[in-house]
Computed example of a mutant assay.
Amino acid sequence: MATTNSYLNFNGNCEEAFNFYKSVFGGEFTFMGRFSDIPKETYQVPEADKNKIMHVSLPIGKSILMGSDCGSDWAPKFTQGNNFSISITAETKDEADRLFNALAQGGKVHMPLADAFWGDYYGMLTDKFGINWMMSYTEPK
């Protein structure tokens, strides 16, 4: 069965917020990447966004708190109080496809499920109730 985690979006202060959360909950970031890490052939990041956080992960107990800064045209517009998504990690690629397609019914797909440059099978959507979802599957090593 898939697992769910919280994904928070910030308006340029993601790194500051996650350093605060780390001081509260302890632990270490398992990943922190900036928009400048996106391969140029994938997307041309505007200069103003290059130092912003593309993705950060902080394990808290059995869950993972994840986040990023909003950017230019690739991210949802930042709205305080509605700046989160539910992130699902599927156990199989078929499960990812099934759940993603079901959640997308009547909603809006922002990024279709596809192999991403960081190695996951990944997609994003907003369901018909206005809830943002992220779906990922990682091949076992």
Rank of each mutant, 00 (worst) to 15 (best):
M1W: 08
A2G: 01
A2R: 09
T3V: 05
S6W: 11
Y7C: 01
L8Y: 11
L8P: 00
N9I: 03
N11F: 04
C14A: 11
C14H: 04
E15P: 00
E16W: 07
E16Y: 08
E16P: 00
A17K: 02
A17G: 00
F18L: 01
F20A: 08
Y21D: 13
S23H: 12
S23I: 02
F25D: 09
F25P: 01
E28P: 00
F31M: 10
M32I: 10
F35M: 09
F35W: 08
S36K: 13
T42F: 12
Y43D: 06
Q44V: 05
Q44M: 08
V45F: 05
V45R: 11
V45N: 10
P46L: 15
P46K: 15
I53P: 00
I53E: 08
M54F: 11
V56T: 10
I60N: 03
G61D: 12
I64F: 04
M66E: 12
G67V: 06
S68H: 09
G71E: 05
D73V: 03
D73S: 11
K77P: 02
F78I: 01
Q80M: 12
N82G: 02
F84E: 11
I86G: 04
I86P: 00
I88D: 05
T89P: 00
T89E: 15
A90H: 00
K93V: 07
K93E: 15
D97H: 03
F100G: 05
A102T: 06
A104Y: 10
A104S: 10
Q105G: 03
Q105R: 11
G106K: 10
K108H: 11
L113T: 07
A114M: 07
A114K: 14
G119K: 14
L125D: 00
T126M: 09
K128M: 07
K128H: 14
M135I: 15
S136C: 08
E139N: 12
E139Q: 15
